[in-house]
Nucleic acid binder design. Sequence first.
DNA 1: GTCTATAATACGATAGAC
DNA 2: GTCTATCGTATTATAGAC
Lengths: 217, 217
Amino acid sequence: MVRSTRSKLSSNKPRQVRDAEATKAQIIDAAEEEFAKHGLNGARTEAIAKGAGITTAMIYYYFQSKEGLYKAVLQRPAIEMYQMLQQLNLDQLPAEFALKKAVRAAIAYEAAHPQRGMLWFQEANQTQGKYFKQGNWQETFAHIIKVLERGMAEGSFRQLDPLMISMQIAGVCTFYFNAHENIKHLTPDVDRLSPEMIERYTTEAVNLILAGVRQQK
Amino acid sequence: MVRSTRSKLSSNKPRQVRDAEATKAQIIDAAEEEFAKHGLNGARTEAIAKGAGITTAMIYYYFQSKEGLYKAVLQRPAIEMYQMLQQLNLDQLPAEFALKKAVRAAIAYEAAHPQRGMLWFQEANQTQGKYFKQGNWQETFAHIIKVLERGMAEGSFRQLDPLMISMQIAGVCTFYFNAHENIKHLTPDVDRLSPEMIERYTTEAVNLILAGVRQQK
DNA sequence: GTCTATAATACGATAGAC
DNA sequence: GTCTATCGTATTATAGAC
């Protein structure tokens, strides 16, 4: 919560202690957490303001409305997820390798943003995917579907339904993080989000999925 | 929305048009839907009352508080899920068969209660699993874990981490339904909750999971 | 057992000062 | 660019009639 104070030559426009982009980013960060927890309807602008260290008036100044802020929040992970898969260059790898890489990257992404998955479940169940629809998820899933189709064509993967299987892969990659606050009560002694546990989860997921789609020789 | 009207001999206690148990059940049904959508905090008692066809006063009459109602709502699926797995008699089947049966049953359960899964995600993220902890989920997951351990002992399953894999199986069984309102926008032409599609999802899930855990000969 | 009415509070959004 | 103050509305929970 660093609040920069003016140094140097006192200018004659004394307020504006922070700059616009920084404040906007702080609001989006706080909003992401609040929207993930409560969805569009349940989120409290006051809670977002407090989390960002500003007042609610600032939210309306930068984003016009709660809905405007919500849209901005959803946009960030939608773009990031697409770009991440894009940058893996899955096309240039054998299907089996590509799938492994994608699964590892997806889980690592979830681990880095443990609450972001809930954003989309809230969106689905509270807003019927109205804003999800405006994203680029078709193209994002296409990355995985393409790998699965290629694997079948190459003969390294068995015959399967690429869309259904990509949903199931998504389920494997996300469940642990979305449900973590429940799961942790099942083994209270273990920190289930420690790097070791996440690596273990990742290894198990890769093994399950790869063995699950592989063509039997 | 059937509201029974008194027939026959006019008694001299004219109100109480419905009986207690029926009203209680109606409230829980409506509450389940509302809590699944919005969680404990975001749920509106007015919305629950409207959904149940009664007034908010009735909620407090039967359940004392919003929280009391919430507890009652969570209890039902927790018990049902446990009993369902119990009644499958998984112990008496070869591990591979048992796992297949459990997966089919789990997906069928989700399909029959498409919004119930969100109840638990809301609980995890909004209440940190405070009420989840009071349930019997340890024992419920134990059913699956036992099957996996037995499969390894029998040599039909490869070496794997039973708890991690059971989480991943849960992810496969639930994702499709929790995210359905988003997913449907990916293929707007298909009804992804039709019996045919659910059967297809089930088959793909069983194939993925069984192949994923099987010991290679 | 069920309703109406209402108290007390909390929320989203805006106006206006600085 | 940021804050304080506030309007109008919506929400949880209860009191009391029937």
